[in-house]
């Protein structure tokens, strides 16, 4: 059996990569992908704990997280497409309508 620490360390690394992606990149789509990475890091931790605890609750939560992620992607991509139609860009630092 794989020690739970390994999975957790992997999950932490994955989450960090996601955070760095959100902070470093300016393409809204890549930022969105980094958010997906973070969600997956959380999923991995859920599954690892479910395995360690001999319980299925963690896996059920992953199931719900996936559902929410699918909904989020559909809406988020629709927003990005709309923004692109208005401003001809997907770079988050050029989308500054609120600055006036």
């Amino acid at each position: 059996m794989i020690p739970v620490e390994w999975s957790l360390a992997l999950s932490a690394v994955l989450f960090t990569i996601g955070v760095v992606g959100v902070l470093v990149r300016r393409n809204a789509l890549v930022i969105f992908m980094s958010i997906e990475l973070m969600l997956n890091a959380a999923n991995l931790a859920f599954v690892a704990f479910a395995r360690q605890q001999n319980s299925l609750d963690g896996q059920i939560f992953v199931f719900f997280v996936m559902t929410v992620a699918a909904a989020e992607v559909a809406v988020g991509l629709a927003i990005i497409v709309n923004v692109f139609r208005l401003r001809e860009t997907v770079f988050v630092d050029e989308i500054n309508l609120l600055k006036g």
Binding site: L10, N40, N43, R51, Q59, F63, A70
Partner: peptide, 19 residues
């Protein structure tokens, strides 16, 4: 693949189908 190793076959397959 990691999910499969953690004995979560269903989640592993759904991961591929959904993501």
């Amino acid at each position: 693949g990691i999910y499969l190793l953690l004995q979560a076959e269903f989640i592993g397959m759904v991961q591929i189908i959904v993501y």
